[in-house]
Design a protein around this nucleic acid. Sequence first.
DNA 1: CGTACCGTTGAGGTGAGTCAAAGTAAGTGG
DNA 2: CCACTTACTTTGACTCACCTCAACGGTACG
Lengths: 240, 240
Amino acid sequence: MHKVCAHGECMIDQFARQIGVAEEDIVRYKRHCPTHSYEPGDTIFKQKSSPSGIYCIQAGYILLWHTDELGNQIGLRIAMPDEIIGHRSYFGEEPHAATAVALTKCTVCQFPRTVINDLQSRHPGFYSLFLRVLAQDRGPPDGLLLRNPYLPVKLRIINMLLILKRVSGQEDSKGHVHIHMPFYRRDLARLISVRPETVARAIQELNRSGLVVFKGRNVTIADMEKLRDSIKFQALKPVE
Amino acid sequence: MHKVCAHGECMIDQFARQIGVAEEDIVRYKRHCPTHSYEPGDTIFKQKSSPSGIYCIQAGYILLWHTDELGNQIGLRIAMPDEIIGHRSYFGEEPHAATAVALTKCTVCQFPRTVINDLQSRHPGFYSLFLRVLAQDRGPPDGLLLRNPYLPVKLRIINMLLILKRVSGQEDSKGHVHIHMPFYRRDLARLISVRPETVARAIQELNRSGLVVFKGRNVTIADMEKLRDSIKFQALKPVE
DNA sequence: CGTACCGTTGAGGTGAGTCAAAGTAAGTGG
DNA sequence: CCACTTACTTTGACTCACCTCAACGGTACG
């Protein structure tokens, strides 16, 4: 079910090195950090459950989604390799605000409370690194690009593509950008807070416009500049 | 223009006490923390400027708003007394993501970088307190209640009222709740990402329904329970 | 060859945006 | 104290993007 992960694979290990933890100590504490593998659809943690540690993504994509009081499912964030999840609830000492589900095959390393406490007590600068991560979290600002009611759906989809491109965009020899969307249309709909039908229609329009070509989960952008420009024209007139 | 604020007034002073800073040391560092007074409409800091410290609100309400690439103004958060602002950009080492404007007369104490660094170097647990504040920041979760495209405008306004009630709600002898909204309709519109006309119409409807009574900036809620119940009926059917 | 599930398409309804104009409130200066 | 300005708020008529519901089309898998 779980193996002890090889040392040096996690984001938090890099943190440890930054604050001067010796390599042999990293090896030692890693014995207490189980690494799990997840299949697409598996749950890493559930909304409302109590956090028992922090999770480092070593491989794969994870969707964080929140169910509001009315039952709407809102996709908060796609977490990618080398990112950490669950830290907000952990440090906030609150139940998880979202459910984490594997979109692809995933490898995730869990840092339990004991290890985190131990590292902090030996190296008081440890927490500061998380302070920075939390402060730089792209979740809230990305939310403004994806769930902004002012932005028409086509724009929200383009913003989603630009976010995915940051990490997984591939440029070929002709300058075309290829992006793989590791989720269902339904999940994309949740991420931008619209219905799946609306996503389908918006994608058809984008395809017809030629700016972006969707083939299943694969997307090709012929001309990034043109795409960025198009954003200005598709937008509503700003307030004021 | 600025005076040195009396000791013990700021949120950060309480943090200092929690980590064992002596009273006389608090008095000492406060000499380097200017306290400013702002009139309604004054700017505390501007989006894109570099943070030079952390701000503690001692009195008054402050609106944080973000202008996106297209020029839309999005109200992110109403900051209230005893809250701190500017800390996300400060610890993220990034320019301010929002502009902070005084909605009412405000008193704000500024902790410059030198003081913060000094406190952290003498008391390594200092940063952990901010870690908790950042992790518990209501901004992102409140955003889901205020700017969720699924929620009809009337609901978003009700959610705004419930958020204001947390801090400034007054209950009278008859069990009616009174809330003062310390901002223009236009700002309310920005906070829930709709146009001011739409806010006006939604408020008229709420008045007619009798659940909530708006008189200028003052709001009276006759029956909290009824109001909470009404949320369920006004919502769109959830996805799935 | 069904069965499931995801994805797409169509017809019809509606909530919020747009634009323009009128209404209100809060100064400001004579 | 009253015209005048200025900025905020409300109202009305119209438009349109997205939602709803329902049906149909793929594709994977037993």
